[in-house]
């Protein structure tokens, strides 16, 4: 670990010290607010546990960062005690360990589904911590398992936090409601790749927060199987709005297809199953 780069997996569980260098608890998690200005994301609060009690300590209370340890300005965590983490979090705030580490994410730049191997934090000049990015790939996993020697051939990529869509329950919900999040900046093609990789309900939620024209373009770029699944799962009005925003030819075809409803015969007797090579569907050429 470079002195200015902290890996979340290594700092979680370590002691948190008071001004007198005595332990006041253990670091259970760190939070970031996705609505905060600036890029990369600044760590907002620390979740510190001590004898079964939890406290959400604002980063302002941190006096120093020393050898992977956090030193607080106060030893009294009383003012920061919480009963329920769910109630204590700001609507745009996520926990890095619970909602990000080891969870599935969509790397929207690389257009792939991945699992977070570690979260990289960088120290700032003003005793702050920024989330620089995440590690994906098996190398980070082997390192955390203490098998760094085997990690030679295992690939690890670093993905910018700004290029992530989180699939954890809270991460997904917070990103949808935060205009700065990646999901709100994607073009139709990237959006098509994203909705192809997340579950159907998440895909409908993602498209519902974008303008119908962008959603329409994304769905005409996606594989027809994905588009049909997502359009059928949407509330009818939303689906109709998105279809209406498609070019006339596509819109007509989709209206006809969706009007058919779920077809028992097609499901049971379908012989027109597409082979894998047809799955590389391209909007310029109809694969069906």
């Amino acid at each position: 670990m470079l002195s200015h780069v902290w890996e979340l997996s290594r700092v979680i569980g370590r002691e948190v010290l008071g001004p007198d260098q005595r332990p006041v608890g253990r670091l259970a998690d760190l939070t970031v607010r996705l609505d905060a200005d600036g890029d990369p994301q600044r760590v907002h609060r620390l979740l510190v546990t001590h004898r079964g009690a939890s406290a959400l300590v604002p980063w302002d209370a941190v006096a120093a960062l020393h050898r992977g340890l956090v030193v607080l300005r106060t030893a009294d965590l009383g003012p920061f005690r919480i009963d329920s983490i769910a109630d204590a979090l700001h609507p745009a705030e996520i926990l890095l360990r619970r909602d990000l580490l080891d969870t599935q994410v969509v790397d929207v730049a690389g257009q792939r589904l991945a699992r977070v191997g570690d979260v990289l934090l960088t120290r700032t000049a003003d005793v702050g911590l920024d989330v620089a990015g995440i590690e994906v790939g098996f190398g980070a996993v082997l390192r955390r398992l203490g098998l760094s020697g085997l990690a030679g051939g295992a690939r690890t990529d670093i993905v910018s936090f700004a290029d992530l869509h989180l699939t954890s329950e809270r991460g997904h919900a917070v990103q949808l409601s935060t205009p700065r999040a990646a999901v709100h900046r994607l073009g139709p093609r990237e959006l098509a790749a994203l909705v192809s990789r997340v579950d159907t309900d998440s895909a409908t939620e993602i498209l519902s927060v974008r303008e119908p024209t962008v959603a329409a373009e994304a769905l005409t770029s996606a594989h027809p199987e994905v588009s049909e699944r997502v359009l059928r799962a949407m509330p009818r009005r939303l689906a109709a709005r998105i279809v209406a925003a498609m070019p006339a030819e596509h819109a007509g075809r989709w209206r006809q297809r969706l009007a058919g409803g779920p077809d028992v015969g097609r499901r049971i007797l379908r012989s027109r199953v597409w082979s894998r090579r047809h799955l590389n569907w391209h909007p310029d050429g109809d694969s069906r």
């Binding site: 997996s9 080891d102 969870t103 699992r115 398992l145 954890s168 997340v198 998440s202």
Partner: peptide, 15 residues
């Protein structure tokens, strides 16, 4: 939207 082993890693850690 995740398989069992993925969830075990997410909830209980890599080890």
């Amino acid at each position: 939207g995740q398989g069992l082993i993925g969830l075990v890693r997410q909830r209980y850690g890599v080890k």
